[in-house]
Design a protein around this nucleic acid. Structure first.
Lengths: 222, 222
DNA sequence: GTCTATAGAAGGATAGAC
DNA sequence: GTCTATCCTTCTATAGAC
């Protein structure tokens, strides 16, 4: 929240910016330093190497994820929990989209980061399963209980690689916030065939909500 | 089919092998040359650069894809067309899994290859839509017509990034043929909620077929 | 904390002899 | 067609002065 950032924080913020704009692989430590008007030596005073920067970025990502997602105890309304999950996940996906654009590559280069990522993903999977079970119990979806876990994996796959899919389909890598939100619609589509007739209006309402957010983007008509 | 391969073909074959085993990014032109016991200079006599090799590999991939997939006119049985699509796509995915393991990265480095890939993908999308329409007309699935295209994209996304998902989830990148076939099961799961009661037995039968192929792998229990 | 200068390593690619 | 030798470029990372 402070206006004055220490150099270390400025490096993290500039890295996120540059990675998102040009791709993580394209941006070197020298580029980051030049962008900030500092020397490479100074950057290496604050971080051991580029992986070290990436780990800090991931920590920041995790911190935001955990702070924004609804606490598990909050049983207000099953569909609200789903919307909250989608809101949080896709907004962070937009803010850190460089990470999702080349996930296997980034993880393969740093086993320590890969481990951390997996540990976070276990929590995410558990949360998705919890949301699905709540939706079943609330009568929103009709889904065999033994399919829940598999379905949760499918959701996670679609969410995680939506950005990558966009990049492989689009002629240029024009990823904007609206195109990211088209991914939410893809996830909702997965739910639709499971929706109970009674819950259909609410699902359609949710769909329209995200359609508005995704509208601005004509980049990909998928 | 010939036993004697020209050096150029040997380079392509060795590249596929090494890329699959160690990842495309990790394998340099020098590695490829050394593996074949030839000089780097010799390799560069046959190929302008590494991208040139990758383009040749992709051409080989495309050739196999088109030669094995059922011709569109063949209206024998809608579910057979689906099985044929899954068989061909996942078998080739296994043989060229390095390509799928880092698709956005590989495509981002070579705009020409990206264009070719997109052109092939358009054909694939059209084929998937044709299969879906055939399944609807045969009464195998019940799906609103206006959802078909979106659903086809979802299938393509899940297929394309199944390998990447495996790599992000598994502790080590142990991709074997059985784990690749678990992706077929994920795709079938997408179909299940749309299956008409009458067709369910056939779908389950297909599911069991691929479960046998996927059985050997305990690497990931997703 | 920050800078300048530079070492060091890796990979891609080419020249020229055979 | 193939080899040896080598250059060029890019990037990471460190040493040492301020």
């Amino acid at each position: 929240m402070e206006k004055k950032l220490r150099t270390k924080d400025k490096i993290v913020q500039a890295s996120i910016e540059l990675f998102n704009a040009q791709g993580e692989r394209q941006v070197t430590t020298n580029h980051i330093a030049a962008h900030l008007g500092i020397s490479p030596g100074n950057l290496y005073y604050h971080f051991r190497n580029k992986e070290d920067i990436l780990r800090h970025i991931f920590k920041e990502y995790t911190r935001l994820l955990e702070s924004r997602i609804q606490p598990p105890g909050d049983n207000a309304e099953a569909l609200d929990a789903l919307a909250n999950y989608l809101d949080v996940v896709f907004e962070l996906m937009w803010r850190f989209h460089f990470f999702y654009a080349n996930l296997p590559d980034i993880l393969a280069r740093d086993p320590a980061l890969h481990k951390e990522y997996q540990s976070v993903q276990e929590h995410v999977l558990a949360r998705v399963i919890r949301v699905l079970n709540a939706l079943r119990q609330a009568g929103v979806i009709e889904m065999p209980e033994q399919e829940t876990s598999e379905f949760a994996h499918t959701i996670k796959l679609v969410v995680t690689f939506w950005i990558s899919y966009l990049k492989t389909q689009a002629p240029e890598q024009i990823i904007d916030q609206a195109s990211v939100y088209q991914g939410v619609l893809k996830v909702l589509l997965l739910f639709k065939p499971y929706a109970s007739p009674a819950a259909m209006p609410r699902i359609l309402q949710l769909q329209q909500h995200y359609q508005r957010l995704a509208r601005q983007s004509e980049s990909v008509s998928v």
